[in-house]
C-alpha cells in the first residue's frame, strides 16, 4: 500500500517536470523487484488493486479488453506485463503509442494529462501485475474496504 502511494507521488513529480520523459528517473525502479505492488489476503485484494480493476475497466478496457486480455484491436496487457517493466509501462501510458499502416490501425492515446488515469496509474499497474503474475483471475475481485487515506488521495489528486 505504502509503495503504491509513494510511486504515485513520484509520478506526479515527473509529470509536472516534463510531461513524461523524465519518468524513468523519477520512478524508483529498484523498489518493485523487492515487493509485489498488490496484496491478496483470504482471497481479497487490497483496495488499491481493486481501484486499479475499476479504473482499468473505466479507461483502458475498451481497447485492451476485459480483464486485460486484449480485444480485436488492442494487445493483451496480461501478456505485455510479463515483459514490460514498470518504467516502460509508465512511458507508454504517459506518452501513448502508434502503429498505423496499411495493415494496422492501432493507436494508443497519451494519458499523461488525464487525472482519471494518472491518479490511478499505480493502482492499474498493481491490478494488471496481479493478473499478469497469475495471482488474480478474471472478473471483479473481492476486495477490502476503502481506506480513508484512499478517499483523501483520490479527491486530492482529482481536485474534488
Amino acid at each position: 500500500m505504502m509503495r503504491t502511494y509513494l510511486l504515485g507521488r513520484a509520478l506526479w513529480l515527473c509529470l509536472f517536470a516534463a510531461a513524461g520523459f523524465v519518468c524513468f528517473d523519477a520512478a524508483p525502479a529498484t523498489a518493485q523487484e523487492e515487493e509485489k505492488p498488490y496484496s491478496i489476503t483470504d482471497g481479497k485484494v487490497d483496495w488499491y488493486t481493486y481501484s486499479g480493476y475499476r479504473r482499468y475497466h473505466g479507461e483502458c478496457h475498451v481497447c485492451h479488453g476485459p480483464d486485460g486480455l486484449g480485444s480485436s484491436f488492442g494487445p493483451s496487457l496480461v501478456n505485455s506485463l510479463k515483459t514490460l517493466s514498470y518504467d516502460e509501462y509508465l512511458e507508454v501510458v504517459v506518452n501513448g503509442r502508434q502503429n498505423v499502416s496499411q495493415a494496422s490501425h492501432r493507436a494508443m492515446p497519451a494519458f499523461g494529462m488525464n487525472p482519471n488515469v494518472m491518479c490511478f496509474v499505480d493502482d492499474i499497474y498493481a491490478y494488471l501485475k496481479a493478473r499478469s503474475d497469475g495471482a488474480l483471475g478474471r472478473g471483479r475481485p473481492e476486495h477490502g474496504p476503502k481506506p480513508d487515506e484512499a478517499r483523501e488521495r483520490d479527491n486530492a489528486c482529482l481536485g474534488f
Binding site: 481497447c63 486480455l69 486484449g70 480485444s71 478474471r138 471483479r140
Partner: peptide, 20 residues
C-alpha cells in the same frame, strides 16, 4: 460487440461493458 472478441471463452460474467 467486438471489444471482448479476443478475450476467449470464460465462465466469468464480471467485466467490462460489452466485453463480459
Amino acid at each position: 460487440a467486438g471489444i471482448g472478441l479476443a478475450a476467449g471463452l470464460t465462465e466469468s460474467t464480471a467485466g467490462l461493458g460489452a466485453v463480459g
